[in-house]
Nucleic acid binder design. Structure first.
Length: 136
DNA sequence: GCCAACGTTGGC
DNA sequence: GCCAACGTTGGC
């Protein structure tokens, strides 16, 4: 089981909106970058991803789960999208500043390739961030 | 609002 | 196929 991180500008698609979609989830659209698309296509049903808010917030705020693997993006069928549903929020969001301050997370793609909008997360990184977010 | 980092495009 | 120019993302 792989872990992932999905980035979103909260003005465009926020965690709150994601939660409001309920169990049926929502399509993760708008990926227009080959590297990000390749990660999207590697996502398997049931795998989990961090939901990261860019912009003013810059924090991982919740966890989503893949409920439908890659299919044509309904906003541009030349690209791919997956469907995700909210699993739960972090008890306390984990800010980018905290991630950068944690030596054990220095290798995180979020730190090293800041612009990549769909990223793999290692199991170790996943556990550390969950712990920092107050999930046990 | 600025700009570094990075991806993409297009001229050669 | 190289690389300069350009556009975009996203942190600061």
């Amino acid at each position: 089981m792989a872990y992932w991180l999905l980035k979103s500008e909260p003005d465009e698609w926020s965690w709150t909106q994601q939660v409001a979609e309920g169990r049926d989830g929502a399509e993760w659209t708008g990926i227009r970058n080959f590297s990000a698309r390749n990660h999207l296509r590697a996502m398997k049903k049931g795998e989990q991803a961090f939901f990261y808010h860019t912009g003013k917030e810059r924090a991982i705020v919740g966890i989503v789960k893949v409920i439908a693997e890659a299919h044509p993006d309904s906003t541009d069928s030349a690209w791919s999208a997956v469907d995700v549903t909210a699993v739960r929020p972090l008890s306390t969001p984990v800010g980018l500043d905290q991630i950068k301050a944690n030596k054990r997370l220095a290798g995180m793609t979020l730190v090293r390739l800041a612009r990549l909008s769909v990223q793999p997360v290692t199991e170790a990184e996943w556990r550390i961030v969950c712990e920092m977010g107050g999930l046990g």
